[in-house]
Write a protein that binds this DNA or RNA. Structure first.
Length: 267
DNA sequence: AAAGTCCTGCGA
DNA sequence: TCGCAGGACTTT
């Protein structure tokens, strides 16, 4: 679910609830996430104030008043919601209680999320974020020259190259740029790289404007779902007519990830 | 079958 | 050495 627009939507909806607030108590109900929640997690947060919340790629970074950084990755099914979960809400692994009574809970059925505190700025080995540093045509063109043998979709999803795109938006951006997911990056023409960089920004901005997007599990910090899933042009549309030319959308799985494309519009 | 990442092993 | 495929994690 959560790719860049969803994580950014969570950040924006979360910020007004937590900025400037002091954490009173942290309850870890289940440490078993992608990596175990450290034993020290609760004590590292308790008593500290959240001074801001940033995002880099799919990571949320909450800055603490002692220079520490509370790092959250939502994995596939993570939710970060304010308020109190209804009794019986499953998979609430972590609860954060703020002074003044505000509560934040982390829910993650698939437990692929990550939650830890770093002493300072974490080393994330991420490429530029399209909505933070920006990814322009020249940068993407240079990337396609440097990583020419990689398939373009793999390149787009490689967080070390560009931070924030996942399977859905990589498919959507490639459709808009009329480029097939399986093309070798090195075979892109300069104009194609330029066009691709432009549509990456457009796609993410549109999804963001729709309140994030994505699939069933997704909710923002206020528990609202996104609106972009109704706007997918190729993702999860195997066999359905292309929105441009009506050719049935093709589906193919590589490395366990589904690619969707229009064989007529995309080259 | 799945939105995310990480690891191993194979072949070019 | 690089890129990819496949499997691993987990629950619905």
């Amino acid at each position: 679910m959560p790719e860049l627009p969803e994580v950014e939507t969570v950040r924006r909806t979360l910020l007004p609830h937590v900025r400037g607030r002091r954490i009173a108590r942290v309850e870890v109900h289940d440490r078993r996430l992608r990596e175990p929640v450290p034993e020290s997690f609760a004590s590292r947060l308790e008593g500290h104030r959240v001074v801001g919340v940033r995002r880099r790629g799919k990571f949320l970074l909450a800055d603490l008043d002692d220079g520490g950084v509370w790092l959250v990755h939502l994995g596939m099914s993570g939710r970060l919601c304010v308020g109190t979960p209804l009794p019986g809400t499953p998979h609430v692994h972590v609860q954060i209680l703020f002074e003044g009574g505000e509560k934040l809970y982390f829910q993650d059925p698939r437990r692929f999320g990550v939650m830890r505190v770093e002493a300072g700025e974490p080393e994330l080995a991420l490429g530029p974020d399209p909505l933070v540093e920006g990814v322009d045509g020249e940068m993407l063109w240079a990337l396609t020259r440097r990583c020419g043998r990689q398939r373009i979709k793999t390149l787009l999803m490689d967080q070390r190259r560009i931070a924030g795109l996942g399977n859905i938006y990589a498919n959507e951006a490639l459709f808009r740029a009329r480029i097939r997911p399986g093309r070798r990056a090195g075979r892109l023409r300069r104009a194609e790289a330029m066009a691709l960089a432009a549509v990456i920004g457009e796609t993410l901005e549109e999804a963001l404007a729709a309140g994030g997007s994505s699939l069933l599990d997704y909710r923002d910090a206020d528990g609202r779902e996104g609106g972009f899933q109704r706007r997918f042009r190729v993702y999860d549309r195997a066999g359905l007519p292309c929105v441009t030319c009506a050719t049935p959308i093709r589906h193919q799985v590589t490395a366990g990830r589904s690619s969707y494309y229009c064989p007529t519009c995309q080259r």
